[in-house]
């Protein structure tokens, strides 16, 4: 059977695409460990980066763990614990925290883990959960006890993404 030229070109492109796709998938799988942006607290023990190596630690800011302070030279200091459930790491950071930083929020910190188990961060980045809601809706969920942002993710989106709460009255 003789293929037409168009057919042959189509097959060449399809085969080249299959080969390229497989190669990319294999490469990404092989390098997956190097493509992670941060390590979770429970991953640290296995990787054991050592006190000299700076790395990124990521997780949720544990509810009730945030203490804000001022250093001797007047710069803002924050102490909090980063958790991923099974493990928790205490973090200290001197500097300004980003807007999204709060308890229960995802966070990525860059720093070194001291021998005392304290993670000294030189940079703190807040992660954004993928929820977008107006302040009134968030307030209503909190008021009715459906959600405490400190304890993690909001309830399923279908329960609030069409909610029309009455504007919260001042002073009530």
């Amino acid at each position: 059977m003789k293929l037409s030229r168009k057919r042959r070109r189509l097959w060449i492109v399809v085969l080249a695409g299959l080969g390229l796709g497989t190669a990319t998938a294999l490469t990404l799988t092989a390098f997956q460990d190097n493509l992670v942006f941060f390590l979770a607290p429970s991953e640290i023990a296995g990787k054991n980066p050592g006190p000299e190596r700076a790395f990124r630690l990521g997780g949720l800011v544990e509810a009730g763990s945030l203490v804000k302070d001022t250093t001797a030279d007047g710069r803002p200091e924050a102490r909090f614990r980063v958790t991923d459930g099974p493990a928790t790491v205490p973090v200290t950071y001197v500097g300004v925290l980003p807007d999204l930083f709060r308890e229960g929020q995802g966070v990525v910190t860059l720093g070194k883990l001291g021998p005392d188990g304290q993670f000294r961060a030189s940079e703190v980045l807040a992660r954004h959960d993928e929820t977008y809601m107006p302040p009134e809706v968030a307030a209503a969920l909190k008021r009715t006890g459906h959600w405490d942002p400190k304890n993690g993710a909001p309830p399923p989106a279908a329960s609030w993404n069409t909610m029309e709460p009455a504007p919260a009255r001042q002073g009530s």
Binding site: D129, T131, Y132, P134, P156, A157, A158, T162
Partner: peptide, 8 residues
């Protein structure tokens, strides 16, 4: 599932 964004 539902979009994690309010319809507003």
């Amino acid at each position: 599932g539902a979009p994690g964004m309010h319809t507003g």
